[in-house]
Design a protein around this nucleic acid. Sequence first.
DNA 1: CATATTGCAAGAGCACTGCTCTCGTTATTG
DNA 2: CAATAACGAGAGCAGTGCTCTTGCAATATG
Lengths: 233, 233
Amino acid sequence: MTVIRGARERARAEITAAIKDEARAQLAAEGAARLSLRAVARELGMASSALYRYFPSRDDLLTALIVDAYDAVGAAAEAALATAGTTAAPVDRWTTVCRAVRTWALAHPHEYALIYGSPVPGYTAPQTTVQPAARVALCLIAITRDAHAAGTLRTPSGPRPPASALTDAAALAGRLRIELPADVIAALIAAWAELFGLVGFELFGQFHQVVEAREEFFTHAVTRLALQIGLGE
Amino acid sequence: MTVIRGARERARAEITAAIKDEARAQLAAEGAARLSLRAVARELGMASSALYRYFPSRDDLLTALIVDAYDAVGAAAEAALATAGTTAAPVDRWTTVCRAVRTWALAHPHEYALIYGSPVPGYTAPQTTVQPAARVALCLIAITRDAHAAGTLRTPSGPRPPASALTDAAALAGRLRIELPADVIAALIAAWAELFGLVGFELFGQFHQVVEAREEFFTHAVTRLALQIGLGE
DNA sequence: CATATTGCAAGAGCACTGCTCTCGTTATTG
DNA sequence: CAATAACGAGAGCAGTGCTCTTGCAATATG
């Protein structure tokens, strides 16, 4: 971590945090589209131009909020995984993490939309977002790897992935040093994307007048995702 | 269809269409956030205030684009289903429709983001969007219903949905007059959401450095979705 | 300690936005 | 033909992101 030396750096860190907090509050209240630098400055009692000392542009502020949101949902997933413990059944660990993601999303819809909805600032996210963005996925990987190490992992259901998908999966496994078969990795990636499809559809209103028992439906659906990659049963 | 009587109504219809076309062009080029009424008016050679005779607000124009986008992706899905024909295997019909959705999304990323990413204008979409929004889902339902009628539908894999989910599914089936078992409906809803999770993750860059053979991966994943609701095999 | 340098806040200002209002003009209808 | 409704254009308001300049305070340097 960076050590803050003088009073100036300390003040800078505090003001930067205050700006992000106020911006996050506006984001939560009104959404990313209505987030206004001038309103943030107004609320903080400073000139709008002073804010540019801390964030060179509105997009940079949004990017900082994106990183924070990824970290927040990642932390929620990790906390859920920790409370579930390593002794629980893999399926239960899986559903616990998934439900934590869903709960966080429902509590922070605008922040969720910022990271898993339309990517607002430009189309290619800065490199700084990729590591926080991976935290939820790493939780799901950890569960699967533990099950694999314990020998309780079946082979994924359904047909075998095509060779190209297995190549991609093997490359990813090598890069992240994941001790899992390529077909499991491929199934994991699909389940990971499908999980956020379920969350996003509920959050963005597609389940309106379609699914009413949202939580039960979600739990059931992610349980099936777990079984499909070979966890449990 | 509405019959256009006078020259005034004809002009109004044409100008409304021209506004939407120009707005759609700007949406495709820059995204919903950068869509500007004044720029649309400028490009059309009219005063910005005149545009408000046709769309009472920017959100109303966006809503019109949303409806059009739902209709476009729905039409793409229906066209794919038509070309696949009724004689093809249910799994192939399913993957054909899914791939048409993905192809449309890749060709129209901003329009896709508008409807399946973060819902921009307000949180509750107007009632006029629900019918066009259902067209893709109705394609998937039709495939499943055809397979059920032909007797080639297995029971969905995995555990049975909870009672509340079955109740929701039965209610939906009754409302839409779908002749399908409740557990199939429930599996269909999950697969429907998961399909758009796969598309969205690819489109929004989450598969960056994760999946390279995107098309093969997608086809494989949606094939598994089909098997999971009982189509084919 | 005195001085030069740097970091910072504030204000004015630019170009842009969505939107409203008014004012002539044009097309439709009785 | 006359009354009415629809329409286009312009001015204007409040707000936005962002830049530039000016003056001040904290830091670093001799």
